[in-house]
């Protein structure tokens, strides 16, 4: 059984069917790139995986556990399962009032608070455990920020960072929750061309670590170099799927050929 199984995923916005039955599988440690022209539902697919949109049909299974549709209406369950996925947004969405370090630690610390509350730990015991956890989380965050090359920018606020630096903080922030599958939605599209390199380098580093990654991108060269599998989306369905060689060198579908011809220009 594959690590991630998406079956017949559907999503409508009113009358527009954006996803008309998307099915694919990926194994742990695989890198899947999603390509396709604008408005074909690539972002919507990632948003459904991350529960930012509720699919209208189909199923999502991670590591044998069905996370959509969930049988229980238990709200806590569905929020827990959503952290199986991590998401890096096109426009970073860092929290402007926190510095780089706190952007990374915030969600970790809040997760700790929720866990302690669930275990009904109270008073000084809670304070002590929280303090310990926070110290640990800070170390984790510092290591992550150093990894993305921002060891010297931890105290800086988002408005003091370049786009590329902000996106690298966002990557560290997503990694901090140790998601099983990390999703990138056009992580370099909002960046000046000279800044895309530093972000792609960081993503390449994650890929070399055998992380499971889904990346929506218009960077064809990058997709070709790093992906195990390419998904070409057109009109809300997967038009063609295969290895980079299959898709880029021997596309079978006319739509794929037309799209690649356009991006080659």
């Amino acid at each position: 059984m594959a690590f991630l199984e998406v079956k017949d995923l559907r999503k409508n916005f009113g009358d527009t069917n954006v996803l008309k039955g998307v099915s694919f599988e990926m194994d742990k440690g695989e890198v899947v790139s999603v390509i396709g022209s604008s408005g074909n539902g690539k972002t919507t697919l990632l948003r459904c995986l991350n529960f930012l949109e509720t699919p209208d049909g189909g199923s999502i299974t991670v590591d044998g556990a069905c996370i959509f549709p969930v049988e229980t209406t238990d709200k806590k369950k569905s929020t827990n399962s959503s952290t199986k996925f991590g998401m890096v947004f096109q426009n970073f969405n860092l929290f402007p009032q926190y510095n780089a370090l706190t952007n990374v630690t915030l969600a970790m610390n809040l997760r700790e608070e929720r866990a302690l509350k669930e275990r009904k730990v109270k008073g000084t015991e809670k304070k002590r455990l929280l303090k310990e956890a926070k110290a640990k989380n800070e170390e984790v965050a510092k290591a992550l920020l150093t990894r993305v090359g921002l060891g010297d920018k931890m105290a800086n606020y988002p408005c003091e960072l370049s786009g590329g630096q902000q996106q690298r903080v966002a990557i560290a922030r997503a990694l901090a929750m140790s998601p099983d599958i990390l999703c990138f939605d056009e992580p370099t599209s909002a960046l000046d061309p000279e800044l895309t390199g530093e972000v792609l380098k960081v993503i390449k580093g994650l890929i070399d670590e055998d992380r499971t990654i889904i990346i929506v991108t218009h960077e064809m060269g990058f997709a070709r170099n790093v992906s195990d599998k390419i998904i070409f989306m057109a009109d809300g369905v997967i038009e063609e799927m295969g290895t980079p060689e299959q898709i880029f060198d021997h596309p079978r579908s006319e739509k794929t050929k037309a799209f690649l011809a356009k991006t080659d220009e």
Partner: peptide
């Protein structure tokens, strides 16, 4: 909306998103 969504994908609850992410802004 991105601020709420960032909080959501990081597993925060609605209350946490309001008090820790949105309020100061």
């Amino acid at each position: 909306k991105g601020q709420y969504e960032a909080g959501q994908v990081l597993g925060m609850t609605k209350g946490q998103i309001f008090s820790k992410v949105v309020l100061m802004q």
